[in-house]
């Protein structure tokens, strides 16, 4: 059988364990899990749903045959018996993937039911019956319930529930709804139980800001634009024979900080003679010099991140 082998919850040898009592105990506990039986080089498994064997394999044997083979070696001195617990929600799934090993439901050998009996058996339970089933047990009833159920009794309960669910009767849906109700947990209580708490809004914002490339807000960006604009303008105006300079900066912070810088420069004199006399830069030289100024100002503004210069598009126009 294909089963999740984890840590066994119990390990015994065949001669140390009364297997019948062991099975009875598991039935009483409505145990979900499986038993692994190892004898010499042979291995077998019994899958239990609510304490009832529902599938079995042993060596090359399956189903009832496998059970018989397991029972033959179960009390031997060199038979290892291991018990593994499986979550209730996994049992049906394990039965499904191991259905070739599924045991036939135990049927009592009774005379074939008459037509009336069959009808009675299949009729949906009345409202009173349903209520009776779901009402809280009295003390006496509880005591009665704790007595070990026989294999057939437990099987009958499972079968009844399965039939009700499979036929989709109102009662089944009622039971399912009731189960759902029970399952609704209080989040605060569960969080408290495990010492968990939600992260606050401030922490979330910090994490997201860090992702966006640093703790720069829209207001910060506007401030950076203004500062950088003034610095670049001041530096350009320091160049001789510059009449005016317009600097426009458009920064973006996604995915990382960068943007466009546009500079318009107007020179005082355009005459060749005056330029030769005063030693002023020609248009190309002025453009290169302005570019160097802008680069330097960016690097000075973002000290420690010289590579940020690659994120800027610089456009210079000289008139």
């Amino acid at each position: 059988m294909e089963l999740p082998i984890t840590r066994p919850t119990q390990v015994s040898y065949g001669d140390e364990l009364d297997f019948d009592k062991f099975l009875e105990k598991l039935a009483r506990k409505r145990y979900n899990g499986f038993i692994r039986v190892t004898h010499a080089s042979s291995e077998g498994h019994i899958l239990l749903k609510e304490g009832i064997p529902v599938a079995a394999s042993y060596d090359r044997y399956m189903k009832k045959e496998a059970m018989e083979k397991i029972l033959e070696i179960i009390d031997k001195i060199n038979t290892l018996i291991e018990l593994f617990e499986v979550k209730e929600s996994h049992i049906d799934y394990l039965i499904e993937i191991n259905k070739v090993y599924k045991l036939e439901p135990i049927k009592e050998k009774v005379k074939p039911p008459t037509e009336i009996e069959t009808k009675e058996e299949t009729k949906p339970p009345t409202e009173i019956e349903t209520k009776e089933e779901t009402k809280p047990p009295t003390e006496i009833e509880t005591k009665e319930e704790t007595k070990p159920p026989t294999e057939i009794e437990t099987k009958e309960v499972i079968d009844e529930l399965e039939v009700a669910e499979a036929t989709g009767t109102k009662e089944a849906s009622g039971i399912a709804a009731e189960r759902e109700e029970i399952k609704v947990l209080n989040r605060e209580e569960v969080m408290k139980k495990y010492g968990l708490k939600d992260i606050d809004e401030e922490e979330v914002e910090k994490v997201l800001e860090a992702y966006k490339g640093g703790a720069i807000t829209t207001i910060d960006i506007e401030r950076v634009e203004l500062t950088l604009m003034n610095k670049i303008k001041q530096s350009i105006m320091g160049i001789p024979n510059i009449k005016s300079a317009e600097v426009m900066i458009f920064l973006e912070n996604m995915p990382e900080l960068g943007g466009d810088i546009k500079v318009l420069i107007e020179r005082e004199s355009k005459g060749l003679l005056s330029r030769l006399i005063s030693g002023v830069m020609n248009e190309e030289e002025l453009r290169e010099h302005t570019y160097d100024i802008i680069e330097m100002e960016i690097k000075k503004t973002f000290r420690g991140y010289p590579e940020i210069i690659e994120n800027f598009n610089i456009n210079i126009e000289v008139h």
Binding site: N32, E85, K87, H90, L185, V190, Y194
Partner: peptide
């Protein structure tokens, strides 16, 4: 997933 009582159940995980 292991059936261990120290672990959270599916319902608890969904609730949290």
């Amino acid at each position: 997933e292991q059936h261990d009582k120290t672990f959270l159940t599916k319902e608890e995980i969904e609730t949290i």
